[in-house]
Amino acid sequence: MHVGNYLGLVHQSEQQLADAFSKVADHHGDEPDILQTCQLLSSWSQEHVKALHPLIDRYSEDKSDEPERLSQTLFEAPREGSLALLRDLHDLWLLANEVQLCWIVLLQAAKALRDQELESSCEQFSHQTQRQITWLLTRIKQAAPQSLVVAA
């Protein structure tokens, strides 16, 4: 039984994602849509972290420092400017996909366990993570041409 392993992984990954969204919001405060949307999406991840507690209690999580190491690798130093914004959104997208994959794996386990509570939680959180990813991709596609081709 390794459900606790993935619960630990998703717990830490969501926390990293929440922190990263809020850090990117701070770094790019001159871009109002980035600031506000990243703050909002950070709050979504924070809610997931909170909502995980009953499940963690049930399956007892294995603590993992992998997500922390991943986000340290991704967000190097604070970056500024339009290319930096693109790179930060890029890294958020990678982190969010890490989270999403955790939900997909856990959803599979939930089905095999016939644990309806875990299943519906995974579906709900996965849906919201997908919305985070969709927004990130939309904004990345918008920023990419100007950042790579035109900006100094």
Partner: peptide, 10 residues
């Protein structure tokens, strides 16, 4: 679009 975030539907 997502009504909250503005994320574009593919």
């Amino acid at each position: 679009h997502d009504l909250t975030t503005g994320g574009a539907v593919s």
